[in-house]
């Protein structure tokens, strides 16, 4: 009996080693350890074993059973892991193949830039207001210190809708509406669409966009104006950006200035973008004209303020180096998708 057991043990271990699939493992388990398996059969032959040897033989049989079960389990897990590894190896893909993308839409580049401006000015406490695009002569000109037949009207070619109605030539019209309806302190920006009778070319469009800014309070100075514009310019063009004032003329501000920023392309050294000057003109600004303040019922002796007008289209084209303003209104998706 012992010899039989030993022979079975050698035989079984040899077979077990050669097993190569889950099915063979299962077959082997049934063949050896099943109800009709070889080891079970051996156990059934215990009757022929002398009684005193039975416990020893019994123990040997159990040990063999236990050994085979353990080995089978190990074998099964090795095989399973080999199979998994083989599957994973077969599933290898070319990771350099392109990804699949969902189409995400986007804002028009003008509004992308506008969103940035709104963020910058709101963080400085400016409310964002709106105003009509079809304006009266009063709000677009008269109240802004440009009386009828004033030569300053020649600075802007105006589209008229009726004798007294026009398409606003400047968002400055919103200054007046704001000052009529609010008491100082006033800090607003008014982004919007404006219209001028300019023939369409690479740098002109009869429809364009401005962001008007207005601050009215006690003790507002030109230095405050420069401070606000420096903050704005640094957010848009980078922290090293410098701001320069040049004297200019607008009927509704006095003093009036053109505002240049140091060229972000060359850092002020002079290059093609800034035409060698090191500076780029970005907006007009000034201290609100006392006549404009008093016309809105604000005492210019008590309050002062500043206003500025940013050309959004020009800011967008210079920022993204767009060579032709017409691209903004053509809406070719190959252009729009770039932003």
């Amino acid at each position: 009996m012992k010899q039989q057991l030993e022979a079975l043990r050698v035989e079984a271990l040899a077979q077990l080693d050669a097993l190569s699939s889950q099915k063979e493992i299962e077959d082997f388990r049934i063949r050896m350890l099943g109800k009709k398996g070889e080891l079970t059969a051996l156990l059934r032959g215990m009757g022929s074993v002398p009684a005193e040897e039975r416990p020893v033989i019994g123990q040997m049989v159990n040990e063999l059973r236990q050994l085979l079960e353990e080995k089978l389990e190990t074998k099964a897990s090795v095989l399973a892991s080999e199979a998994k590894n083989a599957r994973l190896a077969a599933e290898t893909i070319d990771v350099t193949l392109p990804g699949e993308q969902r189409t995400v839409g986007g804002l028009h580049p003008l509004n992308n830039v506008l969103e940035d401006l709104i963020d910058i000015f709101r963080s400085m406490g400016f409310d964002v207001v709106d105003g009509p695009e079809a304006e009266t002569d009063y709000y677009n000109f008269e109240a802004l210190n440009v009386p009828a037949d004033h030569p300053a009207r020649d600075m802007q070619d105006t589209f008229y809708l009726a004798d007294n109605l026009l398409l606003r030539t400047q968002t400055s019209a919103a200054q007046i509406r704001t000052m009529e309806n609010r008491k100082p302190p006033i800090r607003i920006i008014c982004p919007g669409r404006v219209f001028r009778a300019d023939e369409v070319d690479a740098t002109h469009s009869p429809v364009f966009h401005q962001v008007e800014g207005l601050v009215v309070d006690k003790g507002i100075t030109m230095c405050d104006l420069k401070g606000v514009l420096e903050q704005f310019a640094r957010e848009i063009y980078g922290p090293q950006t410098k701001v320069k004032f040049r004297p200019s003329f607008f009927p509704f501000t006095e003093p009036s200035v053109e505002v240049d920023v140091s060229c972000s392309e060359c850092g002020g050294e002079g290059c093609r973008v800034c035409k060698g000057t090191g500076w780029i003109e970005i907006l007009g600004a000034g201290m609100v004209h006392p006549r404009v303040l008093s016309g809105c019922g604000i005492d210019p002796e008590e309050y002062s303020g500043f206003a500025f007008g940013i050309g959004l289209d020009r800011l967008t084209t210079t920022r993204h180096k767009i060579s032709d303003i017409r691209l903004l209104f053509e809406n070719d998706v190959r252009f729009l998708d770039q932003f």
Binding site: I118, F121, R122, S123, M124, G125, F126, D127, V128, P185, R187, V215, D217, K218, G219, I220, T221, M222, C223, D224, K226, G227, V228, L229, E230, Q231, V243, K244, F245, R246, P247, V257
Partner: peptide
């Protein structure tokens, strides 16, 4: 105008509403 030095605005705090 290069004598004008930018200063941060002072005065009443405003909110920046839309």
């Amino acid at each position: 105008y290069d004598h004008i030095v930018g200063t941060p605005m002072t005065g009443a705090v405003t909110r920046g509403k839309k």
